[in-house]
Computed example of a mutant assay.
Amino acid sequence: MENKETVFFQDANVTITQSRFVTQAKTYAMNNISSVCLYRIKRSKGLQLFLLIAGLLLIIGESTRVAGIVMALVGLVLLFLLKDSYSVRINSNSGEADGYISKDRNYILQIVNAVNDAIVHRG
């Protein structure tokens, strides 16, 4: 008798079945997962804001104007390029863990929904 697992999500990075949540780095047993949610990992913007403000202050001086423009532009570009990350936050009997991390919120949401479906299927 063959015991076929139900697959809730599968791609090159993640596989979610009724009994396992498998990533490239780790495998979680579904019976150990009590809940799952989408978690936002906010990136620090301190360096970018420092470069922007320091650059704007340097623009005031005649001799430092070019350096100030460059610093302000670098700070501004970095401010818009660096994005927050999202994770599949897993709660289990051993605590919280980030099961998978990506900058793509919709992708992480798909994984979270699939893990939730697998938890419900498990009963």
Score class of each variant (00 low, 15 high):
residue 46 G to E: 08
residue 8 F to S: 06
residue 102 S to A: 12
residue 38 L to D: 06
residue 112 V to T: 11
residue 18 Q to E: 15
residue 51 L to P: 04
residue 36 V to F: 01
residue 84 D to E: 14
residue 65 R to Q: 09
residue 67 A to K: 04
residue 15 T to S: 00
residue 32 N to K: 15
residue 114 A to C: 08
residue 112 V to F: 04
residue 60 I to C: 03
residue 123 G to F: 09
residue 23 T to V: 08
residue 68 G to Y: 07
residue 90 I to A: 07
residue 9 F to E: 02
residue 30 M to Q: 12
residue 63 S to P: 01
residue 5 E to L: 12
residue 62 E to S: 03
residue 85 S to H: 08
residue 65 R to N: 01
residue 42 K to N: 11
residue 63 S to A: 02
residue 86 Y to G: 08
residue 115 V to D: 01
residue 93 N to S: 14
residue 77 V to G: 02
residue 40 R to P: 02
residue 30 M to S: 00
residue 28 Y to L: 11
residue 7 V to N: 04
residue 28 Y to R: 07
residue 71 M to K: 07
residue 55 G to R: 03
residue 89 R to H: 10
residue 34 S to M: 08
residue 108 I to R: 10
residue 123 G to V: 10
residue 41 I to W: 10
residue 114 A to E: 06
residue 54 A to L: 12
residue 49 L to T: 12
residue 25 A to H: 07
residue 73 L to W: 03
residue 29 A to I: 09
residue 39 Y to Q: 12
residue 46 G to K: 13
residue 15 T to V: 09
residue 77 V to F: 11
residue 3 N to R: 10
residue 14 V to D: 04
residue 7 V to A: 03
residue 54 A to Q: 01
residue 68 G to D: 06
residue 42 K to Q: 13
residue 56 L to K: 06
residue 1 M to P: 02
residue 122 R to F: 13
residue 90 I to G: 06
residue 85 S to F: 00
residue 114 A to N: 07
residue 42 K to L: 11
residue 12 A to S: 06
residue 122 R to A: 13
residue 91 N to L: 13
residue 13 N to C: 02
residue 54 A to P: 05
residue 113 N to Y: 00
residue 119 I to W: 08
residue 63 S to I: 02
residue 5 E to A: 12
residue 39 Y to T: 05
residue 64 T to C: 03
residue 21 F to D: 04
residue 84 D to C: 11
residue 111 I to R: 00
residue 81 L to P: 02
residue 109 L to E: 15
residue 88 V to Y: 08
residue 103 K to D: 14
residue 34 S to N: 11
residue 85 S to K: 14
residue 9 F to W: 05
residue 81 L to K: 12
residue 116 N to Q: 15
residue 11 D to S: 01
residue 106 N to Q: 15
residue 59 I to H: 00
residue 69 I to D: 04
residue 103 K to L: 12
residue 109 L to P: 00
residue 22 V to R: 09
residue 73 L to D: 03
